[in-house]
Design a protein around this nucleic acid. Structure first.
Lengths: 333, 333
DNA sequence: CACTAAAAGTTAATCGTTTTCAATAGGCAA
DNA sequence: TTGCCTATTGAAAACGATTAACTTTTAGTG
């Protein structure tokens, strides 16, 4: 039924070893043998069984990227970076989604434990720091975009605390004194870091923290709308709103626009991620851009290094971010 | 170095066959043996090597979804449907991106040829119909969202021609007579079908086709903006614009809004896909919704059927679409 | 022509499982 | 005691490749 290397060998009148050598471009094969094998391969429509090959070689040249869902549009750049880097070294990147379920995340990591892939990258871990730290000791595991406190694992991310600080500080520089924060109930380390940066900036400016200006919601647009509404109904309204994601900011601006609030004047808005829609939405949104492509590229390069070498790099690398200023903070055009 | 089933067998003082039986929950194993094996597995931190297993069983319980990139946000629902359906039958769905490169698409299909996955689904094929048709004969291959002319392959999609007809017809029903079309230079079958539907609707209404009202651009927002500009600079401007994707529509509306054109009044806009941003953008966009989740679910169910059975279903299934009416056509609120 | 080294090709071990088939042990009836 | 049946078990043969170790052929040298 299935065509194997044996069939090719028979058809080409050589041994399986010779076929294997031809296919793997090894030396010590005569031109005639090469011809005969290639002809047989062609005629039989043979393609080598990776399971046999990978089992023997104990490597698959495949890396698994584990994300929550493909919805978060800005993952796509990260994945592109990962793929480019992997491709250069002959690796493929496969993507799998956890749908925010830690059990399913563990199930997917099973592919790593069971050698179905050579390595894995977690982009939005739901498992706890300790568990991941233990796994990283034993397997070729890395993290990207997100980091975890007290987790010994190769990690490529940005300095989210600093980014939160920078964004908030920019709003302060514009003379704003009551700055709201829209963040999420479910805490990822990145959102915690961004919130901490926000708080530090206020502190450095000598502004006491007003907890009522912080809204804990969800990751989606609706949550931004609700959050903005909540803040705007305060006796003492904010004059600027920083959100931990553009999606939330867009929801917030939607509320503002439909309630006669002048975006970029009455209230300034600052987002995070620089998603495509942040400069489609009118007014254009000021935001923090993180180097998605580069993070993806870097994490794969370093992970492959780990796979190939016998010492394991478990450092955290923080790549630089950048503020993009647009109409929502009264800048740009 | 690596812990194998042999190590477990030794530790549990049984044969590898018994270990395998315990791990696969087969009957005919004594309680003591089960206990001993489980204890050994636990202590050694053993997890079975999938390569060995898959090679022996000649199945991986993995299906590859091949997409162009994860950027197109509306894929995420399709993938969710795929995953749910797969999960129910003990399969995993892995995602890989072609980045619009037919060669890379073929490379990824190599995983199918080489038994690294049990089946594959193409969501945006770049290879030609004939090639795919041939491959589908030999391998467990299916298509979703897109179809191809003269291609004998299992396919789940919608009736794009009918959807294009319906959208155009709705605009006609609103009394519009000069309806523009924003579509793409690079032709996917779905966009061709939508365009054909548009043309048929005009014909049925007795309106002669005006080629100058059709703009061939790209898939992105900028292209929508440019396309709208082009149409609006015509001597004889359109009074409605149908785009083959919401992204394009949003770009088009952006142009209209910034040029004093009353969206939903002067010009009606109709999109396609019902992406998340279509009801975030103000004014909200009327659009054609396709059952993404259901298409994903259906294609996996049918593909697994094919994998399990010995007869191959190569039919095309067209699931129903739905018009969603919002402010951009003067409807909704 | 004899001898040697290099090149080409073959055989068989190996990777880690599952699974067939045969063997063993124990229980029970005659 | 003997024979038969059933429930567990283990030994060994797959699965399909790569590759180490070995053998044969070819070519080159004095």
């Amino acid at each position: 039924m299935n065509i194997t290397i044996k069939d090719v060998a028979k058809a080409a009148n050589v041994s399986v070893a010779t076929v294997s050598r031809v296919l793997n471009k090894k030396t010590n094969v005569s031109d005639e043998a090469v011809q005969a094998v290639n002809k047989a391969v062609e005629e039989l429509g043979y393609s080598p069984n990776f399971l046999g090959r990978d089992l023997r070689k104990s490597e698959t040249k495949r890396i698994l990227a584990i994300i929550a869902s493909t919805e978060q549009s800005f993952y796509s750049e990260v994945l592109r970076g990962m793929q480019d880097a992997a491709y250069l070294q002959g690796y493929d990147v496969l993507i799998a989604t956890t749908r925010d379920d830690p059990e399913h995340e563990m199930h997917l990591l099973g592919m790593l434990f069971s050698k179905a892939v050579d390595g894995a990258v977690l982009l939005a871990p739901k498992l706890d720091s300790h568990t991941i730290s233990e796994l990283a000791k034993k397997y070729q595991l890395a993290m990207c975009l997100e980091r975890l406190e007290d987790c010994e694992i190769l990690c490529v991310t940005i300095d989210n605390e600093r980014a939160g600080y920078d964004a908030t500080n920019y709003l302060l520089g514009k003379g704003r004194r009551r700055i709201g924060l829209l963040t999420t109930e479910i805490r990822s380390q990145s959102s915690v870091d961004r919130e901490n940066g926000y708080k530090r900036a206020l502190k450095d400016a000598g502004i006491p923290l007003d907890e009522s200006l912080i809204y804990y919601g969800d990751y989606d647009v609706e949550s931004g709308t609700k959050g903005c509404e909540a803040l705007m109904k305060l006796a003492n309204k904010p004059d600027a709103i920083f959100s931990i994601s553009d999606t939330i900011s867009i929801g917030a601006m939607t509320y503002a626009l439909s309630h006669g609030i002048a975006v970029g004047k009455d209230v300034l808005f600052f987002g995070f991620d620089n998603i495509a829609y942040s400069h489609m939405f009118i007014p254009h949104l000021s935001t923090v851009e993180q180097p998605c492509y580069l993070q993806g590229k870097a994490v794969i390069e370093k992970l492959i290094n780990n796979i190939k070498s016998d010492v394991k790099d478990t450092n955290t690398y923080k790549l630089p971010h950048r503020l993009i200023l647009r109409e929502s903070t009264g800048d740009g055009s």
